[in-house]
């Protein structure tokens, strides 16, 4: 979780935006997100926690929202997250105290 927050910062969100985003996700206030985002969030939660319960309907919904190739990207990415977290949890790696992925790229002024 610490790393995902660091990577959100690298992707361009400031501290306050990261805090607001993750607080909304944690409280289940997903109505602030688009319909498609919510589909991806639900799919992520289900594939992570109960992978065998993924149904044809879940995948069809993902494809309808994102298209076939992007749906594959999402499936791959969520599976990737599950590799990373197993190493983090299995070895109980201590979280680094600073953002180890580097500062956010500076946005060029228009």
């Amino acid at each position: 979780m610490g790393h995902s927050e660091m990577l959100l910062a690298v992707a361009g969100l400031d501290d306050e935006q990261v805090r607001k985003l993750t607080a909304m996700l944690a409280r289940g206030e997903w109505s602030a997100f688009s319909k498609e985002d919510q589909i991806a969030f639900r799919f992520t939660h289900k594939l992570t926690g109960q992978p065998a319960s993924i149904t044809d309907a879940d995948v069809k919904e993902l494809i309808a929202a994102y298209g076939r190739h992007r749906a594959m990207d999402i499936i791959w990415y969520v599976s990737w997250c599950n590799y990373m977290t197993r190493v983090g949890d299995g070895l109980q790696l201590p979280l680094e105290s600073t953002n180890v992925f580097g500062p956010a790229p500076k946005k060029e002024k228009p």
């Binding site: 995902s4 944690a26 985002d37 969030f41 992520t44 939660h45 992570t48 949890d89």
Partner: peptide, 13 residues
């Protein structure tokens, strides 16, 4: 990375 956050929260990582 929003999806990553959800996966880490689900796994309590």
């Amino acid at each position: 990375n929003t999806l990553f956050w959800i996966a880490t929260r689900t796994n309590r990582c």
